[in-house]
Amino acid sequence: MDKHTGNLSGSPRAVYIHIPFCTNKCYYCDFNSYVLKGQPVQDYLDALEREMEATVRLAPPSRIETVFVGGGTPTVLTPEQMEQFVKLVNTYFADRAEAFEFTMEANPGTTDMDKLSVMKQGGVNRLSFGVQTFDPVLLRKIGRIHTVDEVYQSIENAHKLSFDNVSIDLMLGLPNQTLAQVEASLDAALALNLQHYSIYSLKVEENTLFHDLYEKNELPLPEEEAELGMYLLTMEKLAANGYHQYEISNFALPGKESRHNMMYWRNQSYYGLGAGAHGYRQRVRHVNIKSIQPYIDATLSGLPIAEQFTVSREEAMEDFMMVGLRMLAGIAKDDFIREFGTDVDEVFGSIISRLEQKGLLAVEGGRVRLSQKGIVLGNEVFGEFIGSLS
């Protein structure tokens, strides 16, 4: 199967691994994460090894192209724990493509030279720092405990060790955030001359402190029009500085796009390992047990899967469109035919035509993609495909 389609007939070439520990819980975060203090970290790493061993035995990997370690905050591991962890990854996913991408999420303030050295020696070649804002007041208001100085120190440490593929996350639409604050953060971020920037809007998720405040009408979010202005400014500034917007929230120098995330957006298969991790293989999705100790216990007798379900052909088609259209290059009609054996226009022609007439989609050169107007109204576009075949 073509490398840009779902690889349904083979094993995944992408691996996601979840480290669920954090120094603290940010006010907006609904990820499966737990404050580090008192957690059985060593038992968790041992459980991860058992899950890796069982996974590759039952579903041997193809040549791996990407590994992405998320959380939580993977860099809260001590240097010794990090050394053990990367050794596990290198043991069970040793057959790798030549242009292998190994990303580790990191928080400023948790990446000293010793830890970064262990990661570098272990093959990590891409870092993604959760910065969120360069405004110190806003950092405290969203529950981040790193300082702006620690951002600069972490980036400097990474450069000293010759990490040449570094990304940072920034957030828009934070409580009381102004356009001027966004511009200042963008300027500070761009002054670092990094390879990649992920810049996305705050979503108020259930089971977060921000959701509780929102329900009480105590979360002073910017107006929708103000947030749109922040996004438009972001696109303008990144483009002016030579960064290609290749996905709704992601900007990169040429060749520095997140290859792992592109696996998701191309609806490709991937292994999902760790507490609460999601995986997708041969049109079967699974979700692992979320809680730490039950996850650890489950690996003693098999795979720690909480639930799994088969994705129907119709749902796979909807997914293909929704995630594929997040990329500004859109979806290739040839890829759709190769994956599903039918033309995208036969399945979604009326939706595509309607969205094209609204000026939200462009169809040209055998591709369907968001128009400039559609980039801003992406959720309206994606919503048209959800459940459209059921």
Results as ranks from 00 to 15, higher is better:
residue 376 V to C: 03
residue 29 C to F: 08
residue 225 E to S: 11
residue 10 G to Q: 14
residue 106 A to I: 00
residue 55 T to V: 09
residue 228 L to R: 12
residue 283 R to L: 12
residue 41 V to M: 02
residue 179 L to H: 08
residue 299 T to N: 09
residue 303 L to N: 06
residue 344 V to Q: 06
residue 106 A to G: 13
residue 366 G to K: 08
residue 208 T to Y: 12
residue 224 E to G: 01
residue 149 D to M: 04
residue 67 V to F: 06
residue 203 K to R: 13
residue 278 H to E: 06
residue 88 L to F: 08
residue 199 I to R: 01
residue 276 G to D: 03
residue 362 A to P: 03
residue 288 N to Q: 02
residue 103 T to P: 09
residue 351 I to L: 13
residue 144 R to F: 07
residue 133 T to H: 06
residue 322 M to A: 10
residue 79 P to H: 01
residue 14 A to L: 09
residue 344 V to R: 09
residue 386 I to K: 10
residue 93 F to S: 02
residue 49 E to I: 02
residue 249 S to K: 00
residue 346 E to M: 12
residue 246 Y to L: 01
residue 193 N to V: 03
residue 306 A to F: 14
residue 98 E to W: 03
residue 11 S to H: 11
residue 4 H to R: 15
residue 304 P to L: 11
residue 161 L to I: 02
residue 241 N to R: 12
residue 229 G to K: 00
residue 213 L to G: 07
residue 8 L to T: 14
residue 219 L to T: 08
residue 43 D to K: 14
residue 218 E to R: 13
residue 332 A to L: 15
residue 58 L to P: 05
residue 65 E to I: 03
residue 47 A to F: 01
residue 291 S to H: 15
residue 334 D to M: 12
residue 272 G to A: 04
residue 167 S to D: 12
residue 51 E to H: 05
residue 287 V to A: 13
residue 208 T to M: 07
residue 32 N to I: 05
residue 17 I to N: 02
residue 133 T to S: 15
residue 258 S to P: 01
residue 155 I to P: 00
residue 75 T to R: 09
residue 55 T to I: 10
residue 175 P to W: 02
residue 386 I to R: 12
residue 340 F to G: 11
residue 29 C to V: 08
residue 210 F to E: 10
residue 47 A to N: 00
residue 342 T to M: 15
residue 108 P to G: 04
residue 284 V to Q: 11
residue 347 V to N: 11
residue 18 H to F: 09
residue 22 C to Q: 04
residue 268 Q to E: 06
residue 31 F to P: 04
residue 19 I to S: 06
residue 56 V to L: 02
residue 174 L to R: 04
residue 336 F to Q: 11
residue 85 F to C: 05
residue 147 T to H: 05
residue 322 M to P: 09
residue 211 H to D: 15
residue 279 G to A: 08
residue 306 A to T: 08
residue 340 F to E: 11
residue 333 K to D: 13
residue 172 L to G: 00
residue 376 V to Y: 13
residue 201 S to H: 13
residue 163 F to S: 02
residue 29 C to M: 06
residue 161 L to N: 06
residue 169 D to F: 00
residue 289 I to L: 15
residue 95 D to F: 07
residue 142 I to Q: 06
residue 68 F to G: 07
residue 252 A to E: 07
residue 151 V to K: 00
residue 264 Y to C: 01
residue 63 R to E: 15
residue 137 V to R: 14
residue 329 A to F: 12
residue 82 M to K: 03
residue 289 I to N: 06
residue 1 M to Q: 12
residue 288 N to Y: 01
